[in-house]
Amino acid sequence: MTDVDELVRRNADFVAEEFPTGLSLSINPTGNMMVVGCVDPRVDPSYILGLKRGEAAVIRNVGGRITPATLRTMKMLRKVGQANPDGKADRPWNLVILHHTDCGMTDLAPFDDLLAEYFEVSTAELAAKSVSDPYGSVRVDVDIIHGEIRRPDFLVSGLVYDVSSGTVEVVVPPTAVPKA
């Protein structure tokens, strides 16, 4: 069992051996990137995508899904970025949506009421969410972003991570969000 004392010890090791200097200079991701991924402990987006600290903002939720709550979080983070313009890179913003195989979300498929509440939709609309198919669900979520965010400097990608092999497949290549 990992307890708080162990976490504090690990943090001391981190500070002594790995803490990067200069990271506190900007709250904005140095890679102009945000990754939305699942809370599954096997699928840490920073680790499996080789992201360095400060390179991307990472949002994790059940299934790595684009829900109304995720969209609200993204809007809040954009405001934080606007309030802190220093360190912003002048290049397109990249949103990576990362779903994965063997996701626990598929175990929730029989619970229509719970899923409808999570997605803030009616139970009749759940089939369109492609809950049990990571390839379909990542396409659904990319489409949601294309419908919600209208910025020409915004690229959206959809990836699926295979928990058996460790590989990532590009399902939706980086695509510019259509203009309003």
Results as ranks from 00 to 15, higher is better:
Ile97Tyr: 03
Asp90Glu: 13
Val131Pro: 10
Val121Gly: 11
Ile59Arg: 00
Cys38Pro: 10
Arg53Phe: 07
Pro29Phe: 06
Arg78Lys: 15
Leu49Glu: 03
Arg53Pro: 08
Thr73Glu: 13
Tyr47Asp: 07
Gly37Cys: 07
Ser46Glu: 14
Arg53Ser: 00
Val96Arg: 06
Leu114Asn: 05
Leu98Thr: 10
Thr30Met: 13
Leu95Glu: 11
Thr73His: 10
Leu98Arg: 11
Asp44Val: 14
Lys129Met: 15
Pro134Met: 06
Glu117Met: 06
Pro110Trp: 10
Thr67Phe: 02
Thr123Arg: 13
Leu49Ala: 05
Glu120Leu: 08
Val140Phe: 12
Pro45Asn: 10
Thr67Asp: 01
Leu71Ala: 09
Lys88Arg: 15
Ala57Trp: 15
Pro85Cys: 08
Phe111Ala: 04
Val36Met: 02
Thr101Leu: 04
Val121Ser: 11
Leu115Cys: 04
Val43Asn: 03
Ala116Ile: 06
Pro68Arg: 08
Thr73Gly: 01
Leu98Cys: 02
Leu71Arg: 03
Leu98Ser: 07
Ile97Glu: 09
Val35Gly: 07
Asp86Val: 14
Pro45His: 07
Pro110Met: 10
Val36Ser: 03
Arg60Trp: 04
Val96Glu: 05
Lys75Leu: 12
Val62His: 05
Pro92Gln: 10
Tyr118Trp: 05
Thr70Glu: 00
Ala57His: 15
Ala128Met: 04
Gly63Trp: 09
Asp90Leu: 09
Leu114Met: 13
Leu77Ala: 05
Leu108Cys: 00
His99Ala: 09
Ile97Asn: 01
Thr73Ile: 14
Leu98Ala: 06
Ser26Asn: 04
Leu108Val: 08
Pro92Glu: 09
Arg42Leu: 09
Arg60Ile: 01
Ser122Asn: 11
Val43Glu: 02
Tyr118Ala: 11
Ser46Met: 10
Arg53Ile: 06
Pro85Gly: 08
Tyr118Arg: 08
Ile48Trp: 12
Ile97Trp: 00
Ile66Thr: 03
Glu55Val: 07
Ile97Pro: 03
Asp133Ile: 05
Gly81Cys: 07
Val138Asp: 00
Glu125Val: 03
Val131Gly: 04
Pro85Lys: 10
Met74Gly: 10
Pro134Leu: 08
Asn84Ile: 02
Thr101Lys: 02
Lys75Pro: 00
Arg42Ala: 10
Leu108Phe: 13
Pro41Met: 05
Ser137Lys: 05
Tyr135Gln: 09
Gly81Tyr: 10
Val121Phe: 06
Asn84Val: 04
Pro68Gln: 05
Asp90Pro: 02
Arg42Thr: 06
Thr70Leu: 14
Arg65Asn: 06
Ile48Pro: 13
Ala69Gly: 13
Met33Gly: 01
Asp107Val: 00
Arg78Leu: 14
Leu114Thr: 12
Met76Phe: 12
Thr67Tyr: 04
Lys52Ala: 14
Pro41Glu: 11
Lys75Asn: 12
Ser137Phe: 02
Val62Pro: 01
Asp44Met: 09
Ser46Thr: 07
Thr101Met: 01
